[in-house]
Computed example of a mutant assay.
Amino acid sequence: MDTEISESYGLQYRKTEKFGDFKAFRYRNILYTIVPCGFLEQEEVIELKQLSDYMIQKGESRVGLIVPTKEGQLTAIINNQPCMIIRCPRKTQYRENLTGRELAIFHQRGRTFPYKLTKCNRIGQWKNLWEKRVDQMEMFWREKVSQHPSNEFEKRFIESFPYYLGLTENAIQYLVDTEMDDYPSLVDSATVCHHRLTEQLWQEINHVDFPHSWVFDHSSRDLAEYSRDQFLTDYKMDQNKWNHFLNEYNQMSPLTSFSWRLLYARILFPIHYFETIEGYYLTKSEVKKMSYENQLNRHLDHSTKYEDFLVLMNEYIKNNNRSLHAPNVNWLTKEYRSKF
């Protein structure tokens, strides 16, 4: 590996070290990470390079710099797989928790990116992506039903999928209604977001914000995924912490009616369920399979609590935006659920 890096990048080092999930090395007292990127198309890597260079230029001190090879390529084959070398910034001030103000500033900077993006772009694509994802899983589910479950995980998957299919249909309809009934403003334009912003990712971002985890999307993506993760950590919401975070964000970058509704549509979409099922069937590790099975059991055992979370989110959004005339998901109202 040292020979491959030396030949491709001209970087010399004596030993590797661990940096989060990645291998890393030091050259002239600067830390470089080796990030596998076989899941990214070359055009997407080029766009991520443009985005990260721009965010560094705008003052984002935690962003890692994608280093080109001596020939100007952004990836190289290292250990038989495509990788990026990312130069880590020098240590910055560490904050244990993500603040709404920091995220709002990050989004404001990303929103001014002046060039068109194609491969990283997700804005306006949620409906098609969600439909494609649920259609693929429904086909897979029907196949498993016809084969009969071979273990406890498959049995729980077969039993639970119709419920999450219904929740997904609610999310898609809510999104369609939002795009038909409401209007985006300038603050609703695309910005730099994280594929999945979680508390764990933020701990990593405190040291380096790796561009390979970015997409160009509506800011509500980060807000929704961070809020979802806050709940799923213990299947309960620290309302004071959560309210403070959203209020701080909203003061720095006021959310529009359109933003609030997109946020709720995204939380309705049960991405945590889909990723658990997909992860189980994609991994070859028995240890990871067991982890996904435990994860699925927790999600299903706490599905009622997740409904409570959706009700809480809906009430919070409406209370903080009096002009919002968003539709209710009828079975996710206190009045309806109190009957059962």
Score class of each variant (00 low, 15 high):
residue 112 T to A: 12
residue 249 Y to V: 08
residue 295 Q to T: 01
residue 42 Q to E: 13
residue 222 D to R: 10
residue 332 L to V: 13
residue 119 K to W: 03
residue 307 E to W: 00
residue 222 D to C: 07
residue 187 V to D: 08
residue 316 Y to G: 04
residue 32 Y to I: 12
residue 78 I to N: 03
residue 248 E to A: 13
residue 173 Q to C: 04
residue 67 V to I: 15
residue 172 I to W: 02
residue 21 D to I: 04
residue 246 L to M: 10
residue 70 K to R: 13
residue 322 R to H: 11
residue 199 E to H: 13
residue 174 Y to H: 12
residue 280 Y to E: 09
residue 212 H to N: 13
residue 119 K to F: 10
residue 105 I to Y: 10
residue 277 I to K: 03
residue 305 K to A: 08
residue 283 T to P: 04
residue 244 H to G: 03
residue 278 E to G: 03
residue 149 P to W: 14
residue 280 Y to V: 02
residue 109 R to S: 11
residue 214 W to N: 15
residue 303 S to N: 02
residue 170 N to G: 05
residue 143 E to I: 09
residue 203 Q to E: 15
residue 116 K to Y: 01
residue 169 E to R: 09
residue 111 R to Q: 11
residue 232 L to H: 07
residue 94 Y to L: 02
residue 6 S to T: 07
residue 130 W to I: 06
residue 240 N to C: 03
residue 216 F to E: 04
residue 11 L to N: 08
residue 60 E to G: 09
residue 333 T to E: 06
residue 134 V to A: 02
residue 254 P to S: 08
residue 222 D to T: 08
residue 133 R to G: 03
residue 334 K to A: 12
residue 153 F to E: 13
residue 212 H to T: 13
residue 317 I to Q: 06
residue 306 Y to E: 11
residue 305 K to E: 13
residue 92 T to K: 05
residue 76 A to F: 00
residue 310 L to Y: 05
residue 308 D to Q: 05
residue 198 T to S: 15
residue 62 R to A: 11
residue 104 A to E: 04
residue 100 G to V: 07
residue 218 H to A: 05
residue 149 P to N: 14
residue 249 Y to C: 09
residue 15 K to F: 02
residue 326 A to V: 14
residue 131 E to V: 01
residue 136 Q to K: 13
residue 221 R to K: 15
residue 335 E to W: 13
residue 6 S to W: 11
residue 79 N to H: 00
residue 7 E to F: 00
residue 71 E to S: 14
residue 308 D to P: 05
residue 154 E to K: 12
